[in-house]
Write a protein that binds this DNA or RNA. Sequence first.
DNA 1: GTGCACCTTGAACCCAAGTTGAAGTCAAGG
DNA 2: CCTTGACTTCAACTTGGGTTCAAGGTGCAC
Lengths: 152, 152
Amino acid sequence: MDEILTIGQLAKRFGLKTSAIRYYERVGVLPEPARESGQRRYGPDAIKRLEVLEVAKRAGFTLDEARILLQSSDAGSPAFESLRDLAARKLPEVDALIVRAQAMRAWLLTAMDCSCTTLDVCALFDRDAQTPTSAVAEPLSITHVGGAKHAA
Amino acid sequence: MDEILTIGQLAKRFGLKTSAIRYYERVGVLPEPARESGQRRYGPDAIKRLEVLEVAKRAGFTLDEARILLQSSDAGSPAFESLRDLAARKLPEVDALIVRAQAMRAWLLTAMDCSCTTLDVCALFDRDAQTPTSAVAEPLSITHVGGAKHAA
DNA sequence: GTGCACCTTGAACCCAAGTTGAAGTCAAGG
DNA sequence: CCTTGACTTCAACTTGGGTTCAAGGTGCAC
């Protein structure tokens, strides 16, 4: 049960490339593992950590957020607090994404029925009078959703 | 009514930065406008084009796709054809996005109720047994959704 | 003693959609 | 003339999540 894996074995188990695992280490989302003659050796804790990371990624957290999660989990006690905080902060983002995606979907359905000969006359492209639900806003993206850190 | 705008005025009207408009020109999504002593001057056609572009962007099309749309609209005849094609190609992507976002939302709701003291014991982070709808997959993003052109 | 699989490193590259900066041009106003 | 403000250019940088490359090390079997 307490298997020790090389980076290649670990990568295979998670369907990742070794480069990805080294990258996680570089950005601080995985700790530096023990070494045997220079090579990384991963124990069960690293495996668990990678499992958590994978789920967090699927849940839409960025690596930065996942790092916070994992670090506060290391720090001992209030791991659940930051998980709840992160989830609570993420929820409105995801909700907004869903609303926009659904508006987008409605627009696309209308577009598939369109037979205007030029875009100039097509009502789909009049600003305002947009989709049934008028909630289409910024361009969609989840990886970048709270973004604009570098805005002026 | 046939106003002539400078790049700054055009940008203000669309809530863009001038750099964005120049960028659109650079990537071929806007044509090169007329110039007055070196400066760009935009007429009603450019304004309409930008309106279409904005709607297309909000509908989730990439700039590349928008360029196709606008070019075939310039080329005269079957604007609606490429619009319908693009819309039909985009729809499943958007549908997949919605499914994943909803699974993510469910996971987040569960996470907000979690009171596990460490992540290690938290069932949320067991792979498999994930969300009610098991459809969480790749990390979400729309800007990149058909992506993986550079995959090995 | 060499062939092979696996590992190591850092740096450079990929994508989209722009932004930022430096250095320069132009017209109007005082 | 000088300043102010809006414009011009191009290259380099940003974000996030990695991949790819080149050059070299390590361990083991044949």
